[in-house]
Amino acid sequence: MKLLIINPNSSPSVTARIDAAAQAARLPHESITTICAEGAPELIVTPEDALIAEKAVTQTLANWSKPIDGIILASFGDTGLAVVRKQCNVPVVGIAQSAYAMASVIGTRMSIVSFSPAMAYALRKTAESYGYGANLVAMHMVEDAHWDDPGAIQDELADELLKLCRLSAHEDKVHSIVLGGGPLAGLAARLQPNVSVPVIDGTTAAIATLRVALMAHPSSKMDALNLRA
């Protein structure tokens, strides 16, 4: 299985975080390549950021020339998902869609923990758009956080994010917690030993989702010649 992960923002350090999480989840027979969308914002926070990033994602994919079996879009807005699904003929999943779906399998009550209140509206909107609004019983954001490098967010805020996860597990009575935001890729595994309910990583969830999709449609494959017009 050859997977392509596209980070819809242009941060090399966030892309490295996503790739590290993906490689940790990779099985021996799988090949995973992670790239960022050239020309996209460094971090996707506003609707304007998302529009720019969507165009960058589609152009980046159009320039891709190697065979792949599936695509993951690694932002929690699932930026460009609908457009990319029309653009190619292999399974395409977003990390938000995959994370929320996994949470719904675990139980009916989930929360989202993320690194900035500026993310809250988009995270809730995405969850609701996939039909998981009723499952989302709480959201917890780190207040007044500042960073210079988006890729350093999870290291700088790990203690605060852990406190919020533990708070949600205890007070919200959730069945699972979704870590919202591409910069948090891979952090769930580090927090999990100290949290009493499953902490879901979007990248890992997306890889698992694609495995199932490719088992159902093993003949799917895309190369530079069969992108849809």
Rank of each mutant, 00 (worst) to 15 (best):
D159W: 05
A134D: 10
R85M: 14
V93P: 04
M119N: 11
T108M: 14
A152H: 14
S104C: 05
E156I: 12
L123A: 09
V142G: 07
F115D: 01
V105P: 03
I106C: 01
V92H: 07
V137S: 03
D155V: 09
V92I: 11
A103C: 02
A103I: 00
P117E: 08
D148C: 09
R85F: 15
Y121T: 14
E143C: 08
A158T: 11
A127P: 01
H146Y: 13
N89S: 13
N89L: 12
A138E: 08
C88K: 13
S129N: 12
D144Q: 11
E156Y: 14
E156P: 13
L164G: 00
L157K: 03
A122M: 09
A103Y: 01
D149G: 03
I112Y: 00
A96S: 12
M119E: 12
M119G: 03
I95K: 04
A127Q: 01
E143V: 09
E143A: 15
Y130E: 07
G107C: 02
M141V: 13
L164D: 00
L136W: 04
A118K: 13
L161I: 04
L161P: 00
G151D: 07
S114D: 15
A120Y: 05
L164R: 01
M110I: 05
G94E: 05
V113M: 01
L161W: 01
S114Q: 10
M119P: 03
V90M: 10
M141W: 15
Y130D: 10
V93N: 04
L162M: 02
V93Y: 04
S111P: 01
K86V: 10
P117Q: 11
K125N: 10
P150M: 09
M139E: 12
G131V: 04
Y130N: 09
V90K: 10
G107L: 02
S111T: 02
I95Y: 04
M110K: 03
G131H: 04
Y132L: 06
P150K: 09
N89R: 15
A103L: 00
Q97A: 11
G133P: 07
G151H: 08
A138Q: 07
E156H: 14
A134Y: 08
D159V: 08
G107Y: 02
N135M: 11
S98P: 08
A152N: 10
L161Y: 00
K163C: 03
A134N: 12
M141F: 12
V105N: 06
A138C: 07
V92S: 06
K163D: 07
K125V: 04
V137W: 03
G151C: 07
E156T: 10
S111A: 11
P91V: 08
M141E: 14
R85P: 13
Y130A: 08
H146N: 12
A99W: 00
R124V: 13
R109A: 03
A118Y: 13
K125I: 02
S129T: 11
A134C: 05
T126H: 08
G107H: 02
K163S: 06
Y132K: 02
V90L: 10
E143H: 13
V84D: 06
S116R: 07
R124P: 05
F115K: 01
V142Y: 06
K125M: 12
D144V: 11
G151R: 08
D144M: 11
